[in-house]
Each structure stands twice: as C-alpha cells, then as structure tokens.
Design a binder for these strands. Structure first.
Lengths: 403, 403
DNA sequence: TGGAATTATTTTAGAAAGTTAATTAATTAA
DNA sequence: TTAATTAATTAACTTTCTAAAATAATTCCA
C-alpha cells in the first residue's frame, strides 16, 4: 500500500483545488467578497480575481452589484463586492433507497430541493426493478421541471447496508436481501450520468454537513435509525469510511446485561430500531395486529405508563451508546434522523441527559445533540449531496480511498 | 469557523509538500528509486530529480551507488538507483511523562532509539521539577552521545490526560494532578527547541503508525492501559483528535451491568486498568500488602483459578469495548500497549475472540490485533515521532486544527 | 462640494514550480 | 560490440501563482 498521505501535488491540481476552495467558501458563507476569499483560502487577491472571473464566465457564480459583502457595513474605502453561487447553475440527482421506500430528488447547488418524489417498493422486488423505478421517477421529474441535462452534475445514491464507494457496489443490504448489487454501473448506464454510491447514514451525514446544521462543524456524527441503526461520520467536511468502508456500524454496538450473574449481549439495533420497539410494545400491549410507531407514541403520550417506561429505558441505553461514541470520536455535533423525528419528547430528553452524564468531562458538555432540520428529506438530500461533493465541489478527489 | 477543508494551495506550499512526500516515501519504503517515487507521488521524474538533488545537498538523503532499487532485479536497461534517508541526518527528542515514570530519548529520523533514559518521579512533585528533570536528562544524553544541536529537529512530549496540541498546554492530567500546565512553552524556553505536545496514547499511535506495525495502515487504533486507559486514533498517517482534542477517551466507555434489575454503569477504566485489576486481585486474595500486576499474573499462571476467572472476565468486557470500537471506527489494526505487554496469554486470547465475535460481519474478521512491537519504548518513540512528523516530515502542517 | 484618505479589485510584470520532450547514461541481450 | 531498453538529466516551455503598481469606489471632513 502507499505510504499514508505521502501524495504530492501535480501542478494540474493546483487550480482545481483553489476553484474548489472558492466554491466551498461561497456555499458556506452564502455571500463573500474577494478579499475575504483570499484570506480564507490563503492565496493572493490577484488569483481570486482571475479564478472568480472564470467562474462567472462559466455561469457558476454571480457578483451582486449592489450588495456589500457581509460583515463590512459602512466602512471607509471601496466596498467589497458580494459574490454568490448561482443555485440553478447546476442540479444534482439524489436517490435514497430505503427499506420499502424509495425517494428521489433534484437539488440545486445549494442543496435546495427543486423537485422530489417518494415511492413505495416491495422488498421482494428484483433490484433491477427498484433501480428502474428510481431512474424513471428521476426522468419524469427532469422533464416536468425542465431541467437541462447538461446542468446535471451526476447522481448520488444513498443505499442501505454496506457499500463500496470505489466500485459503486452495494455489497450487502440485509434488510433488502441484496448482495453485490452494482448500483453505480446500473444507474450510470441507464441515465448516462456519473454516479456515486454510499451508505445511507453516511450520505445523510454529508448532507447535514454541507446543507444542514453541520456546516460549521469539524467533526460530526449522523445517526439514522429505522429498520436498522447506522451512523455516518464526517470530519472536516469529508466522510470518514474506515478501512473497509465499514465505519459507523453503531447498530451492532453491544451492551452487556447481566442476567443471573452471567453476561448477556444485546445489540443497539435490538433496542432502539422500529422493529425492536414495535415488538416490545406489542408484548406490553398484548396486541397481535399491526401497530405503527406512531400508535405507540400516541398511547404513551396518552398515559400508558408501561410503554413510557419502556421507551425511557431504551432512550437510556441509546444515551449510553452515544456517550461512548462521544468519548471515542469527540464530535462537535450529533444529528439524529429517522424514527427520532417522531419521538415527540418521549426519547430525546433521556437520551440527551444520559449522553451528557456518561460522556467524559467537557466532551459531553460541549457536544450538540439535535434531530435533523432536513426532516424526512435528509436521505435524498444526502444522496444529492454525494454527487455535488464528488462531481461539483471537489472534482479533484476522484478516488480518495484506494489501497 | 472556516468552511471545512476549503483551504487552497498557496504556491509556496507546493514544493514543500512534494519534498514531504519524498521523505515520507523514503521512510516507508526504506529504499526507492526516482522513477517509483515519481509514480507514487504523482509528479514527473524531472521534478523528482530536482528535489532529490536538493535533499542530497542538504545531507538528508543518499544515493546508494551500487544497489538497484528493490523490485527491479536484473532488468534490461539502466538500473534504477536506490535512494535512502540518512538516519543520522537529524535527531528528534522525545519525552514521555507517565504517572510515576519519565522516559526520554533521542531517535534518529527512522525512529531508531539513539539514546534513552528512564527516571522515576513522585506524583507530588511540582510540574516544573518534573519537566526540569526531563530536560536535564535530555541534555546529558545529548552531550554523552555527541548529538549536534543543529541536527535536532525538536522535542515531542507525550503527556498524560487532556492536551491541547495547538497551545502545548496539558489541560488536565488527573493522575498527576496537573491543571493547565504549559508544557510546550516551558520546555521550549529551557531547551531552545520547537516543542510539540500530545496525549500519550495518541503519541504512541503515531509512533506505531510511522515506525511500528502501523506503517501500511489507513486507519489504526493504539490502546494504552496502565493507570488509565486511552486510545489514539491515526487515519492516513495523521492523528485524529476530534473536535476538542478529546477523541479516544475509551477508558470512560461505559458498560451496563444489571444489578437486581436496575442498571449499574461501570467505566472501562474501572475494569481493565492496573489499579482496578490489583484491587480486584487483592480482594480475591484477601491480601492487604503491596501487590504488583506481575504477582497477579504469576499466581494466575501458577493455577489460581479465581484470579484466572477474574482476568478472563475482564478480558471479555474489554473485548466487547474493542468490538464496539471496531464497529464505529473500522480500523485495520489495533495495537495494545502498557499492561497488555505483560499479560502472558491470560488476557489476549479472550480479548481477541470476544472482539471478533461481537464485531460486525467482516469488520471483525479483517482487523488485526497485536501488542506493540515497540515494547515499553513506545511512549518515548511516540513522543519523538510527534516532533519528527511536525518538524521534519510535514513541516507544512503547522497548525492543522484551529477554529 | 471636492479633495484626502481608505480600502477593494484589477492589471502588469515576473517568479516559482511544475511539465514535456529530447538527450544522455547505464545496463542486458545477442 | 552493437542494439535494445530503461533511468535519469537537461532544456525549453507552460501553468499558476505572487508582488507591486494602478485603478476604482467609497467615506471623511474641511
């Protein structure tokens, strides 16, 4: 293997990287002047002038001829000129393949959803059928909204389970019974666009880091719980995948329960996922028929103490796992998505209290804990974010993780 | 805060980074030719020729006029010429401040210990006295071994507890009762050398990544257990610190124990550290007097089943924590140091078995688990590695983590 | 109101560092 | 010994950035 990070700079990368830095700063600040760009990026204003001119020519960014750049009100001297991204300069397609659900979207360069659609699919369906459905839905959206093909930078796919982003293969998606599905190649062949595939929690984490509350954050974790529980880690704006693209398998964290003196192990997924919660609720309620998580929450809020206690206990255990995550990874922010969006105050308070109590010293105090502000769109926005990151904002990083 | 990773390339960095890449490749491969360097680094052979010539002039690297570079035996054509680092071109000073122990060393550029000394110190001593002791010991070693000052790149300090590497302050070292000790400034003033300070487990992780079995590794964890338990994480050859330089506080991971139906929490440190093990052994043996870990191991090996069972249980719990670490961080390698070096087969087998059993799918199978090959020198070598990394191999990274 | 002061951006001239292609060097094969 | 082959160096040139000077757009203040 190559020595870690001992890669040099080929002169052809320099400009591309500086352009990248400009685009990312514009995304981050919304509007920023050339002087500040030069400061932030660490190059001369002359360079900024030249690169900005090119980007304006390409129709990617605009100079607001009126507005002063922020932070410089009424100063002496020539005013700084605001530069902004042109959101509709490019679009990104996102596909979130969830268990039983399929979400597709086009976002603009700023991560705003321009069009989207959610579909159901059966777990028994062949993977081809599922991906066909997604591609057709995207095609329909593109036509309806009149999105020019040449403005679409690519397709991002947030897939369930283990994904190899270098090959675009969904190695295994247990809850869909998919094995080695060549998601990237298949979609790329159908749509004629570059495709990037990633694990769903990781895609969401990136979406949150680029367009959500993770924008100013050095290290963050996104936790998505639904049928399974997964975490996505983002460090300095880049997804952390680990050695085998397996980082973040927090659902398989184990907790120890002594039963009669001998240890018994339980995975987090058996504690806090929707199936786990429903199973427990069903046994509490002695109900056999179908039950939704909303029902359970409703009944707990209506005063079912046994349900409430069950949920509270689960929240406590999840809080412990979060505290351990904080101790190991020391994130600045943890964002929760999926079933946490419908907890209505029954889980979060205990989760947060426990997490802060058991995290080490200041780490637990400093970390922020939130549910995602992107709501149930976080999966598709995350998917679109994958493509934006790889094909628009950081095209130089074509193959980050290879051996 | 600045947008994540949106930093550009100032032209003055380019050469420095390519030089860095050459040095790191030489360290990694031991001997390598210009053609291969060009391939690995991604620049032209012309550039390599020029930069190598400069490095030879500076006396940092040498061309072996005989040897063919490895991997190219008896080929047609002009043979590749081996380039190697000159180990003694520079030295690095390392100080490992452990609880009750102080280890100082000079290593060469390849991490080989040129000279070292270990000292005792009392926990009650003023921090100034401790640091003075270290500086004096270094001074003595330098004189004895005739190490020219101008060849010493700097001093690395592996400190106990929470460290802020940007300021060089040891924010808190609970086991030494140190608070906000300006380690970096103090040593720098005494020795007149640049100093870099880091948490001990992280320093060891870097040492292992540069000079130990972590050399080919993308993501690794080093776990140091003695009075406390800490982990150092290294990703792509760089220390991962987290948002508040608090990553790796694995000793404060909590495990849940049901006691009479209600959960009771225990930290890893209360399970697997030396004090914890000794306390438990003492209560098993009903012995009040002083007991060493070696005694405990001896007696367990001699057939004390209660002790053996205790150690095995502890190993099991540690294995669970490792499995959870593997699931979250997905390292390729985990290296253990400190008390694990004297376990004599009583802990590791159970640790490894448990870790692999409870880690998710392939992650647990792929990860390697070892005790450090650097032995008890890992702390001082890690400390020296800090300085080599920051002042010799990657001088461009002066301030990686700022807000 | 109009110049002085101030700050931002652009232009110009040039330097730094890389690249490509041609050349030279050191081998093996025949 | 010469041809073939591969490595390393050199020479000419390109790219990209920088520094410093010039220009532009304001506010300040008499």
């Amino acid at each position: 293997m190559r020595p870690t990070a001992a890669v040099g700079i080929h002169s052809s990368e320099i400009k591309q990287r500086n352009v990248s830095a400009i685009l990312l700063n514009l995304l981050h600040y919304g509007a920023i002047s050339r002087v500040l760009l030069a400061q932030e990026i660490g190059v001369s204003t002359a360079t900024i002038t030249n690169l900005v001119a090119e980007l304006v020519d390409q129709g990617l960014i605009a100079e607001d001829s009126r507005a002063r750049a922020n932070g410089t009100p009424n100063q002496v001297g020539r005013p700084q000129r605001s530069l902004t991204l042109i959101p509709d300069a490019r679009y990104s397609a996102g596909i979130h393949i969830d268990v039983g659900k399929l979400h597709v979207t086009f976002t603009d360069v700023c991560g705003e959803v321009v069009a989207c659609k959610s579909l159901d699919h059966q777990v028994e369906m062949d993977w081809r059928a599922v991906l066909d459905q997604a591609c057709e839905a995207l095609g329909a959206l593109q036509t309806t909204h009149g999105l020019a093909s040449e403005r679409i930078v690519g397709v991002g796919v947030a897939a369930s389970g283990l994904v190899d982003p270098t090959t675009g293969i969904n190695v295994v998606a247990p809850n869909l019974d998919w094995h080695n599905v060549p998601v990237g190649d298949y979609i790329s062949a159908r749509l004629g666009l570059p495709v990037t595939v990633e694990n769903n929690a990781r895609a969401m984490a990136l979406g949150e880091a680029m367009f959500g509350s993770g924008r100013d954050i050095r290290a963050m974790a996104f936790i998505y719980a639904r049928i399974g529980v997964g975490a996505g880690l983002v460090v300095n704006g880049q997804i952390y995948r680990g050695a085998d693209a397996g980082a973040g398998e927090i659902g398989h964290s184990h907790l120890i329960f002594d039963r009669d003196g001998s240890p018994q192990m339980r995975s987090l997924e058996s504690i806090i996922s929707r199936p786990a919660l429903l199973e427990s609720a069903q046994s509490i309620l002695r109900q056999k028929g179908p039950l939704t998580l909303e029902d359970v929450i409703d009944r707990a809020l209506a005063g079912d103490e046994a349900l409430r206690a069950m949920l509270d206990e689960r929240a406590f255990y999840f809080g412990i796992v979060l505290a351990n995550l904080v101790n190991l990874f020391n994130p600045e922010l943890i964002v929760l998505g999926g079933l946490f969006l419908s907890e209505r105050g029954l889980l979060l308070p205990t989760i947060e209290k426990t997490m802060r109590q058991y995290a080490f010293a200041t780490l637990g105090k400093r970390v922020r804990l939130e549910t995602t502000g992107l709501g149930n769109q976080v999966g598709m926005i995350g998917a679109a974010a994958l493509a934006l990151d790889r094909f628009f904002y950081r095209p130089q990083n074509q193959l980050l993780m290879k051996g």
